[in-house]
Design a protein around this nucleic acid. Sequence first.
DNA 1: AAAAACTCCGTACACTGTTCGGGATTTCAA
DNA 2: TTGAAATCCCGAACAGTGTACGGAGTTTTT
Lengths: 239, 239
Amino acid sequence: MIDDDPRPTLDLLWHGIAAPRRGPRHRLTVDAVVEAATGIAEEEGLAALSMRRVAAALGVGAATLYTYIPDKSALLALMVDTMIAEVPLPHTRPGTWREKMARQSREDLAGYRAHPWLVDLMAADHPIGPGALAWTDSAIRMFDGTGLSDREVLSVIESVDGYVRGHASRVVEADRTARRAGRSEAQLEYLARNLEPGRFTAIERLTEPGPDAEEVFEQGLGWLLDGVEHRIRAAADRP
Amino acid sequence: MIDDDPRPTLDLLWHGIAAPRRGPRHRLTVDAVVEAATGIAEEEGLAALSMRRVAAALGVGAATLYTYIPDKSALLALMVDTMIAEVPLPHTRPGTWREKMARQSREDLAGYRAHPWLVDLMAADHPIGPGALAWTDSAIRMFDGTGLSDREVLSVIESVDGYVRGHASRVVEADRTARRAGRSEAQLEYLARNLEPGRFTAIERLTEPGPDAEEVFEQGLGWLLDGVEHRIRAAADRP
DNA sequence: AAAAACTCCGTACACTGTTCGGGATTTCAA
DNA sequence: TTGAAATCCCGAACAGTGTACGGAGTTTTT
């Protein structure tokens, strides 16, 4: 068992591919491949993203892609890291740590909604690329001067990032359902007609419409930030 | 465009399949198919779950499965809803709403870790089945007597559920990486050797080891519950 | 006894990611 | 200048996927 060596992908993420010393010139670049792939994912979703589609979009044969990329999972890793690299860095924003973090979280959520395929790739265990590391580096800096220890800072970042991810997953799922017009209504109608009375009493007695996604997100985010604030104040009172 | 009618799957989720009036007896049941599929996902992961594998595990031909199930996505929906139905219901637990909710969240997280394929399916937009609806119904009941409005209750539930999901995604990703022994170390070693000094200064100055996942989860959960508590107290002071 | 309804499933189709081998092209070394 | 080495490109092929089709066999209804 060779154990699925992550190094080729890491090399690609961090160093790109070196220009060849002999042989015909490259007709493509790794960036072009990643861009084409991302374009397909944006327009038609991850399911439509096949190597042959990417190759066709670039006007080359499918096997040609393997000159630039070791395999599809590396391509996906590159797509993710490239996308992350485009996010403005948290610590460069104006305001207090709280303003920075709130803004950052909102924009991350918006990013996930704008690029739903990111949500699908989120749970896959990609190697860490420069984009992701730059994001983490910047996130740590957000808390410069707050008196929190490294460990506390990382804990806060991970806590909030987890929250954002989870809501991204929820919201994107809702977006997808809503996009297929009629599906959501069809389901509600079906449930309404098929529910045996008395089985789900708490749901039956609901009258108001449910809260919207943004409201829910803001509420929880606020609670988390309150918690962080508490912690920072506690740190300030330490020797 | 027929629009991918969700009704066949909904029927299966809510009513199962009716016994046939003529023709040979059923050799299988929907439950058996779901169980076989779940077994494969548990042992070898979602990627190994193909219709042919499921059929082979049941000793029938692949096409036979389509007598019981309209398509693979319906099978996945059944797997998810069946799994959810096995979770103990939140409102039946002892203690205050806070104790119930904390316990529920921890167990949900543990469930995701124990069944990582659930995390992969989480973001897909499955129709709502009886298991999921029972869970929601029970979650609402957790807040009986707290004075929160329906809307507030749902908002709290969704907020916390999003948090749990996000951390499940993070933790499962970490579990997967850790499971392939050596991968994680290989990556860290690679990064350590390839980082240009001065590029990621905040990360370079880290000394302590990062917080562990459980600690992070508990911290954020506590903050969220503090927020909920606040809200409940505010509700109590209302006319 | 015939017909209808139904399960089971071999086969086939269009797709997937990826490997292989060979032809074309460029560069390096002699 | 010539030959070898290195490299890109890619048609073809392989093993796999989800699923539609049509026919054979089985049971129930008429």
